[in-house]
Design a protein around this nucleic acid. Structure first.
Length: 698
DNA sequence: GTCTAGTGTCATTTG
DNA sequence: ACCAAATGACACTAG
């Protein structure tokens, strides 16, 4: 049983894999114990699902003997279940590891954890061994939203899959059992940095250890052999207790110094190829002893030549100097998550174990050695070219970073602004990309393996982090990426200036380009949880690992938005993208509102027109009615007039001529018969008086 | 192929 | 002066 070093989480895992990469160049097939990182709140009975699925030669484990120990993946729960965040961590192992101060990755859910049985020479298995947690975990950019957690792999899964945050880290120091469900990039970045710094610190702390090991190594070797044999004979519950003492020895640097010196001598004696002299015969006796007994079946046989897949951020982490573009959160820097990892030994199919390649025990040897090396030593000893490849690969496997997504973002041929910096990315370029699938089944982000694409799509859909690309993790892919000078930030300068009408454009362009059987899966990566197409900003945000949803970014109040930008751990590119997303989102909403308003205004005006027209018609009808009434009254008056004059008689009894006389009504109600001349002159006088009065008023 | 409605985006104006 | 909202104009797609 080997234990992870206290600094094993992000930085530790990185250093570890660096050595593995050195091994990879030697094409060494190693039979190693598997180091597992268990979720901090893993409880007895919790089941860990393998990413390989029930049909793969994979195993999953239950973290505690109470749940039956190791079990086949197909016997376990198909998906991780929600753990009770309020439940305190239990188990002796967990307490032990916590006591060691092992960095703790808080999470509340076990989705799928790294345990992948690796057959001898099984490259995919090796990939799985070295990094499946990120791919198997779900959540990704949206992990903090949906509360999903990411796993840190014992073989070096992307540490950023871990949903740790500065706040969570700080809280863990105070209350380790405090649940932390939210994921933030800031936390992950801070955790990365903290772990790298921690690793460097430990390397200094252990420098003294490497000075004293030589004189005691035989004695210690015997002691460890005895311990391991005892472990092999003990039941699991006692095993935990036994391992605790083993931990203590590791902590004290007593049993590790032996291997440290061995490795150091090997490295120093083989400067050009520090591992050249390593062979089965060079394996410390402990390795064989450990591989015997009850743990003889708990070894992974790993072909590390194929193992370059994940946990390759060492270069990136080391390059993150003061001038890097990442914003350091001082809180995150000072706070060190102290939640322990629980380490269990691995299990593999005994039939798949490659005989004669047992280097068990080499892993802790490397591990300890790395602890004793300074960062300069590491940089000096390790081929920088490996770092380049690692970094490039890390881009492919980094949490939430979807190279395929990015590449397709570039390849979106249609642009609404003509600002696309690469106009050659038309359908032809896509076709070329398609053709590259067959040339190198590992062009970044592409895979001819439908399962890979499916996993990729799933990875995308779920915002999974780290990305497990069994095929794309090969060196072939790395070379491809290197050839294309892929750079995420530069790439997103394209993205940010590519006014692509993505959703429809994607469908209209990619579908006819015939990715038979795969286009649908690729298209699925453009769908969100609700099934609709992801917008460009959503895909950009996902590809650039923006820890917020577009909706959040857009709808967030200004103050919250600004504080969010200052609080989180975001690169300049991310900040720029977030601001652009917010601006575009706001403007999009504003445009929608504007159009809606305009439409409403038009509708209102149309209503006004209708109302006015109706009113006009009403008035016209009233006017007609009035005219009719007036005419009727005139007619009646005329008839009455003639009726009156027909009955009037003068003094001589003759009828009165209505043309010469007129009827005039006085104020007292009496009616007078006057000659028209008088009536006309009287009307003129009254009219003149009225005019004068009106003139006076004016 | 053309037309139209709808949409996203940018540049500019407005409050 | 600065910012967000509003708006005009353009490009693009689907029907």
């Amino acid at each position: 049983m080997k234990y992870l070093k206290p600094w094993w989480s992000d930085g530790g895992g990185l250093l570890h894999l660096t050595i593995l990469l050195s091994l990879a160049e030697l094409r060494l097939d190693l039979d190693l114990d598997l180091y597992l990182l268990l979720p901090p709140r893993t409880l007895p009975g919790d089941e860990l699902l393998l990413p390989g699925g029930p049909t793969s030669p994979a195993y999953a484990l239950s973290p505690f003997p109470a749940s039956g120990g190791w079990g086949r993946a197909d016997q376990l729960h198909p998906k991780g279940r929600e753990l009770d965040p309020a439940a305190p961590p239990e188990g002796q192992l967990l307490r032990e590891v916590r006591a060691l101060g092992v960095p703790f990755i808080p999470c509340t859910r076990v989705d799928a954890w790294l345990v992948h049985s690796v057959a001898a020479g099984d490259a995919d298995g090796a990939h799985a061994l070295l990094g499946t947690a990120a791919a198997s975990s779900a959540g990704g950019v949206g992990a903090g939203v949906d509360g999903g957690s990411q796993a840190a792999s014992g073989g070096g899964g992307d540490p950023r899959a871990d949903p740790s945050s500065p706040l969570a880290a700080g809280e863990e120091e105070k209350a380790p059992a405090e649940p932390t469900a939210q994921v933030s990039d800031a936390g992950r970045h801070a955790t990365e940095e903290n772990e790298v710094l921690r690793a460097v610190d430990h390397s200094f702390q252990h420098e003294e250890n490497e000075q004293r090991a030589s004189t005691q190594k035989e004695k210690q070797l015997q002691q460890m052999n005895q311990d391991e044999n005892k472990i092999a004979d003990k039941p699991a519950w006692e095993l935990e207790k036994t391992t605790e003492s083993s931990h203590e020895r590791h902590q004290n640097g007593t049993d590790t110094s032996l291997f440290l010196e061995d490795l150091f001598q090997l490295l120093s004696s083989q400067p050009e190829n520090p591992l050249e002299g390593i062979s089965l015969g060079d394996t410390p006796p402990l390795a064989a002893s450990i591989s015997d007994g009850m743990y003889s079946s708990t070894h992974y046989n790993v072909n590390f030549s194929q193992a370059l897949s994940q946990d390759v951020n060492l270069h990136e982490a080391m390059l993150l100097g003061p001038d890097n573009t990442f914003r350091r959160d001082p809180i995150a820097r000072t706070s060190q998550p102290q939640e322990p990892f629980l380490q269990l030994n691995s299990i593999t199919n005994p039939e798949q174990t490659l005989p004669g390649t047992n280097l068990t025990g080499f892993l802790p040897l490397f591990d300890n050695q790395m602890r004793n090396l300074t960062s300069q030593d590491l940089l000096y000893d390790l081929d920088i070219n490996i770092f380049d490849e690692i970094n490039l690969t890390s881009l492919a496997t980094e949490e939430g970073f979807d190279p395929m997504l990015v590449s397709q973002l570039f390849e979106e041929p249609d642009s609404d602004s003509g600002l696309s910096l690469n106009s050659s990315y038309n359908s032809t370029s896509v076709a070329k990309s398609n053709s590259s699938l067959s040339l190198c089944d590992g062009a970044i982000g592409y895979s001819t393996d439908p399962e890979d694409l499916e996993s990729l799509s799933r990875h995308d859909l779920e915002g999974a982090v780290g990305g497990y690309y069994p095929e794309s993790s090969k060196l072939c892919h790395v070379g491809h990426r290197s050839d294309t000078n892929f750079d995420a930030d530069l790439a997103f300068q394209h993205v940010l200036h590519n006014h692509t009408y993505h959703s429809s454009a994607l469908e209209s362009t990619s579908e006819p380009l015939s990715w038979p059987g795969e286009s649908q899966k690729i298209r699925s990566s453009y769908l969100n949880d609700t099934g609709r197409n992801l917008s460009r900003d959503e895909r950009c945000a996902k590809a650039l690992r923006i820890p917020f949803t577009v909706d959040e970014i857009v709808r967030m109040p200004v103050d919250s938005f600004n504080s969010m930008l200052s609080r989180h751990y975001l690169t300049d590119t991310q900040v720029s993208l977030i601001r652009d997303i917010r601006r575009r989102g706001k403007n999009k909403v504003a445009a929608q509102n504007c159009r809606k308003r305009k439409l409403d205004e038009i509708l209102n005006l149309e209503d006004d027109v209708c109302n006015l027209q109706a009113k006009k018609e009403t008035l016209n009808r009233e006017r007609v009615q009035c005219h009719k009434a007036i005419n009727t009254m005139k007619q009646k008056l005329h008839e009455l007039y003639h009726d009156v004059f027909s009955r009037l008689r003068d003094d001589q009894g003759r009828p009165v001529n209505p043309n010469q006389y007129a009827l005039q009504c006085s104020h007292d109600g009496s009616v007078l018969i006057l000659p028209k001349e008088l009536v006309t002159s009287g009307h003129k006088k009254e009219n003149q008086k009225g005019k004068r009065k009106s003139e006076r008023r004016n």
